[in-house]
Amino acid sequence: MNIRWLIILCVNLLVYFLVQELNDALTFFGLNIYLASLYIVFPAIYLAPTQGAIVVLITSWVVDAPLPTPFGTTALLSIFIYTLILLIRHRIRHHMGAFILSITFFTNLILFLILTLIASNSPLADFAYWQTLGINLICSQAVLLLAAPWVLELEQTLFQLSGTPIREH
């Protein structure tokens, strides 16, 4: 049985849980870390398209469920980005971690900006809003650079432990 998708789904849920705990602790400072690209890029690169789509969908629904945005917003956004990555993944797959990291980095940036466009209902003329947005974006991208190699490493270790190949052939 192919459990590669299950491993990535579990890692996604673990990352989601950890990010939530981190954010829970950071609320006192008014900070928020957004690492949604971690749930999309790795399934897009390491899994078969359908399996990847399932993982992305399930993770997105978990993320989506408690949010005040219409249910499915994150899921649709993730699937859209996932499709884009699928279209270019034959070029990415030959590259090493640094390149994947940069894809993750830019994907997160795009997701962050799109979500801002969709979900923001603060007065746009408010300087404090843009300031917070900027600080959170910088912090998120910084944390992403630290967290992504660890997640990648974790997934690869789990693949090795379960005896499944790192990439789908």
């Binding site: 939530q20 829970d24 008014g30 957004y34 949010l67 979500l115 979900a119």
Partner: peptide, 13 residues
Amino acid sequence: TRRDINQWWQQLV
């Protein structure tokens, strides 16, 4: 159980 506070939404569970 959980705080979800950011520039997009502000909620507690």
